[in-house]
């Protein structure tokens, strides 16, 4: 389960829309299953097919999270033309089995946001709650 407050859901989706036509990405910070802050990042790959969180943005997110008493707990990125499901590359390169992996699909009119846990090469969707 992932708790993603609506104001943060909106920031995540807005960052993905801003990034078009390229994939967009950013880091999730919080405690346990609760996202309490999001850190938009630059897609260093500057691609519509792949993403790399700009390393210095990752460092800044880690420090900001720590200063706020939070931990990095996941990453989000957009799929501009495919569904909100992790690609083989996403699964292969998932850096931390403890993280939440949020996908935002922009392939339809309405953005679709889903979250996954990726452990031992398997992606499993988890419910996303969006409290006010």
């Amino acid at each position: 389960m992932l708790s993603l407050p609506m104001r943060l859901w909106e920031r995540v989706v807005a960052h993905c829309l801003d990034g078009l036509p390229l994939e967009a990405c950013g880091m999730l910070a919080g405690q346990g299953e609760q996202v309490l802050e999001v850190y938009p990042a630059t897609n260093a790959a500057r691609s519509a097919r792949i993403y790399t969180v700009e390393p210095l943005d990752l460092l800044r997110a880690d420090r900001a999270a720590e200063a706020a008493g939070l931990s990095l707990m996941g990453v989000w990125h957009s799929h501009t033309h495919t569904s909100a499901y992790p690609s083989p590359t996403d699964i292969e390169q998932a850096p931390d089995p403890g993280w939440h992996y949020v996908l935002v699909s922009l392939s339809d009119v309405e953005p679709v946001l889903r979250s996954y846990r990726i452990v031992d090469g398997r992606a499993e969707e988890e419910p996303v709650f969006t409290p006010a």
Binding site: V53, D62, Q93
Partner: peptide, 10 residues
């Protein structure tokens, strides 16, 4: 010296 995983995908 800070070590962090590369965060990337497709």
């Amino acid at each position: 010296v800070t070590l962090m995983p590369a965060v990337a995908g497709g």
